[in-house]
Amino acid sequence: MVNNLHLYREALILTLSLGCWGILFSFIIGLICSLISYYQIRGLKRIVSIYIELSRNTPLLIQLFFLYFGLPQLGIMINSYTCAIIGLTFLGGGYMAEAIRGGLDSVSRTQVEAGLSVGLTQSQVTRYVIFPQAMAIALPSIGANVIFLLKETSVVSAVALADLMFVAKGLIGMYYKTNESLFMLVMAYLIILLPISLLFTFLERRLRYAGFGR
């Protein structure tokens, strides 16, 4: 079993790297979408709502299958790694957008007015008053989304990526060492997810000291 540890390690690294890219890009997409929503930018507002509904009401697995098996038919060939990242970004962007939007909405109108009354321009108000508070309020949701996306990476074996599920399934099939394989599998996910969960709890507490959040 110890011989197979390196397989788990490589799969862990793959899962983490997919997760990191997915989280990063979905945060960026989510940020852009939530700002468009918050400032009600005409034209784009509609597209953003449709996107959010699509990404939140369909499973990642389907999105991956469509991207990986369907798009080549239109002449677009994507390798599985990129495909997984695109899928995670598509899915995660919708969730991140909702989380950030929730934060933006929570900053009361009177805060904005207080900022304007001191002579700040609208963009300065956004930068110095709204944004810090919004991010702090949205942090728990963002944390939940981060953990959610990391767990969602477990489906990427469906598009031929050698992730943790793939390794576990293979080892069970080949060596019948079911219990050990499953145990390693759970351990691997705990190694990734528990520290992150603790990190976010810590961050939430720090921000609450500095006056953010409720």
Binding site: S108, T110, Q111, E113, A114, G115, S117, Y128, V129, P132, Q133, A136, A210, G211, F212
Partner: peptide
């Protein structure tokens, strides 16, 4: 023009 509000609205994160 300086304005002071009923809800003071100091920026809580500063």
């Amino acid at each position: 023009i300086g304005m002071v509000f009923q809800s003071y609205d100091l920026f809580p994160h500063m």
